[in-house]
């Protein structure tokens, strides 16, 4: 497996030039070194790190994941080591493997957190950041920043001022006016939008015990093939109002899914939950995409849509 000769899959996202549009989604690919045993990570377009906060976070208690029909609910709660240990311990590992484009996903519990994280990324010459404004699993903020138009605009503008690299804003589908929010993100100076984050969801398990039902609830973010139609619709809606690149995601598992996202206006895609099902899937999709182009007598992705 590898990059096929003479097939141009490259895409530009902000200042980033990606060799192909296949990116691994935040929280599903660790800090990339975990996948060295499965694929050649540098064959991918880019990777997005697990969401990183200013201070380390312990995340939520167990249970944290529950699979449902064609999907997965998670309530990890942004467990991560914090930005400074990341820069010290993990970044050198990512940088060691040359030729990997990586995007740091940052999450904050205040507007100041985001700006500070962006400054730190700026000071450390980080090529691209993705603002997580849509994690449904932390009580203090995150999703809320992506829901209120004024807050969203102010936050993205302030981050833009602090950070010169490629700025991607990750949106949730749990909002009423996607088009309006996307326009604000563009107006505030973001280079790209990634969407969709997980969808708020609940799983119930009932056990009949001692003449009554005992209920176990898991509430979190739903991902996987089951949310693909929601994601396609969301991207289609925002594509009609913004010009900046869109990185589409939501249940992508097969190359047909990649094509569907590109067909509604996504410029690149992120692979999330499918990394759990098939740890080699992201690299496979790069290969499959090239094969589809060859099969249809195309030499470049740009000719397709």
């Amino acid at each position: 497996m590898g990059v096929k000769q003479n097939i141009d899959l490259s895409v530009n996202i902000g200042k980033m030039k990606l060799k192909n549009p296949i990116i691994t989604a935040s929280g599903t690919f660790g800090y990339a070194d975990e996948f060295d045993e499965y694929i050649k990570v540098s064959n991918l377009g880019a990777i997005v790190t697990k969401g990183i906060t200013l201070e380390p976070r312990k995340g939520n208690p167990q249970p944290r994941v529950q699979d449902v029909t064609n999907g997965l609910i998670n309530r990890i709660g942004l467990e991560n080591m914090g930005i400074y240990p990341f820069l010290e311990k993990k970044l050198p590992i990512i940088l060691k493997e040359k030729n990997i484009s990586f995007i740091i996903n940052i999450a904050g519990s205040s507007e100041e957190d985001y700006v500070q994280l962006a400054k730190i990324c700026q000071d450390n010459s980080i090529e691209a950041i993705e603002l997580n404004l849509s994690c449904p699993n932390v009580k203090d903020g995150c999703l809320e920043f992506g829901k209120d138009p004024d807050t969203l605009y102010r936050l993205v503008s302030n981050v833009r001022e602090a950070y010169e690299g490629t700025l991607i804003v990750k949106l949730t589908s749990n909002i009423s006016y996607p088009a309006q929010m996307a326009q604000l993100v563009q107006k505030a100076g973001a280079d790209a939008i990634s969407a969709i984050n997980t969808v708020k969801a609940m799983h119930i398990r009932l056990n009949y015990n001692n003449n009554k039902f005992e209920k176990t609830t898991i509430q979190g973010g739903l991902s996987g093939p089951t949310i693909k139609p929601i994601a396609l619709n969301f991207i289609s809606e925002i594509r009609s109002v913004v010009d900046i690149p869109i990185i589409g995601m939501g249940g992508i598992t097969y190359v047909q899914d990649v094509l569907e996202f590109l067909s509604v206006g996504a410029n690149a895609v992120q692979i999330g939950t499918a990394n759990f099902t098939h740890p080699t899937i992201s690299e496979q999709l790069v290969d499959d995409l090239a094969d589809i182009l060859i099969k249809n007598n195309k030499t470049s992705l740009k000719e397709c849509f």
Partner: peptide, 17 residues
């Protein structure tokens, strides 16, 4: 034993103290 999603150390589903 705990329930997890990825088996390869990235989903944090099985994280314990």
């Amino acid at each position: 034993e705990r329930f997890f999603a990825c088996s390869v150390g990235v989903c944090m589903g099985c994280s314990i103290d």
